[in-house]
């Protein structure tokens, strides 16, 4: 299980990094989203892989998962969402200003023509 989860996090990172390095804003947004997933899972894994022990206190139960990483991840998810949204807005504004969705604002011939 540990190897599998580590592999999944690695794969999500690799996919995210590859997309981040593309030249179009939309790919970068996708890449960042994938990278956020990887980071969130990574943070969760800091509390180790625990089954059926949610950090909800119940009388009679003594074993719980470490709640600290979860609290971090919860805010990370929301902040990650805010960042994605901001990036989208930035991409739209950049296209409005430069007429292109290339990350450096370079106009290319095959850039979609506005209707």
């Amino acid at each position: 299980m540990e190897v599998m989860i580590a592999g999944v996090i690695g794969l999500l990172t690799a996919c995210g990094v590859y997309l981040l390095l593309r030249s179009r804003t939309f790919s970068v947004v996708l890449g960042l989203a994938l990278l956020s997933y990887a980071v969130n899972l990574f943070l969760l894994a800091m509390g180790r892989l625990v089954t059926h022990r949610p950090p909800i206190l119940e009388p009679g139960r003594t074993a719980y998962v470490d709640p600290t990483p979860q609290a971090l991840v919860l805010t990370a998810i929301v902040i990650g969402f805010a960042m994605t949204a901001f990036l989208i807005a930035l991409a739209l504004r950049a296209r409005r200003e430069t007429g292109s969705d290339q990350v450096d604002g370079i106009k290319t011939v095959d850039s979609a023509t506005p209707l």
């Binding site: 580590a6 996090i9 690695g10 794969l11 990172t13 690799a14 990094v17 990887a38 990574f42 894994a45």
Partner: peptide
Amino acid sequence: AGIGVAALT
């Protein structure tokens, strides 16, 4: 990068 993160995890 992926291998690095996987190894770290």
